[in-house]
Design a protein around this nucleic acid. Structure first.
Ligand SMILES: [Zn+2]
Ligand SMILES: [Zn+2]
Ligand SMILES: [Zn+2]
Ligand SMILES: [Zn+2]
Lengths: 146, 146
DNA sequence: GCTTGACTCTATACCAAGTATAGAGTTTAC
DNA sequence: GTAAACTCTATACTTGGTATAGAGTCAAGC
């Protein structure tokens, strides 16, 4: 199977498939006499597996770990579970962060209605004054929104 | 004020401040006779404003838009509001995505307990079979988890 | 046999939002 | 006068790809 077919079957772009090869996520395939990549059915299956993992927002390193473990059917799947657990944690963490941001943003946004001038804009005043308050805290290097 | 002081006062690294200058987020400051950057109080205030925006996860382009509007006190703040609204939307969108992923992940994770072999691992089977089911859908190029 | 179009190859540069060097010059303290 | 601390520019690296350029290959039609 040439790379274009594989791309069509997986939905990855040709460049992405070559990129995964460079990143050692996909083994370098056989080559034809004219140096074209020639893929097996296994490569297709592996790419679909990778696609599924990417759809779950796993990083390439996370996927690599899982693939390494998966390679031998006799391995313990402990590493897989650990990776997934950590990833669930990653996402939970990010959701919590974003929710906090969202609250702050909406609260700031509520201080301005419509078509005011910059000097009267509540949003801009908020952004300024939070920053100022934080800076006078002398406890800088913190993340602000203090 | 030299760049090191500004970095200490804002919590940005020196490289980040120079990076913002390259990105036109911060105007190029005066230089001393020995070519050192020399910053005004205004630059400090602007950087704190930027820090606040970054803490809200706004992109550099979003911040640039806001700064441009903010530059003239007589401008209408409409653009600011539009930018914030769009950004609130950005975050809402991302939260929704992550929540969905989280559900799927937890459901997949629940199919394996502890220390099984790879060939019996529910998690790996799930990842495989979802991919397979999707691939036989011939409706590829979709995001899987179908 | 030859051209045209579709395909593939490598290498390189680009995106966000920084971080991390190297190698040179400058200022400050003792 | 020397050493430490600071700053300068330029360049490379990160993640997960995307987008070229320029060259080679393959199949179809005439
Ligand atoms: Zn993760
Ligand atoms: Zn406003
Ligand atoms: Zn945004
Ligand atoms: Zn398992």
């Amino acid at each position: 199977m040439k790379i274009g077919i594989l791309a069509a079957k997986t939905g990855f772009s040709i460049q992405t498939i070559r990129f995964y090869e460079r990143k050692s996520l996909l083994a370098a395939p056989e080559r034809t006499a004219s140096n074209y990549r020639s893929y097996s059915e296994d490569a297709l299956k592996q790419l679909l597996f990778i696609k599924q993992c990417r759809a779950l927002d796993m990083t390439i390193e996370e996927i690599k770990l899982v693939l390494e473990t998966r390679a031998n059917p006799e391995n313990s799947c402990e590493n897989v579970n650990t990776t997934i657990d950590k990833h669930v944690d990653d996402i939970e963490h990010r959701i919590a962060e974003l929710k906090l941001l969202q609250e702050t943003l909406i609260s700031i946004r509520s201080t301005c209605d419509h078509d005011k001038k910059v000097k009267e804009c509540g949003v801009l005043h908020q952004l300024d004054s939070i920053a100022e308050a934080c800076s006078s805290n002398t406890d800088n290097e913190s993340q602000l929104i203090c």
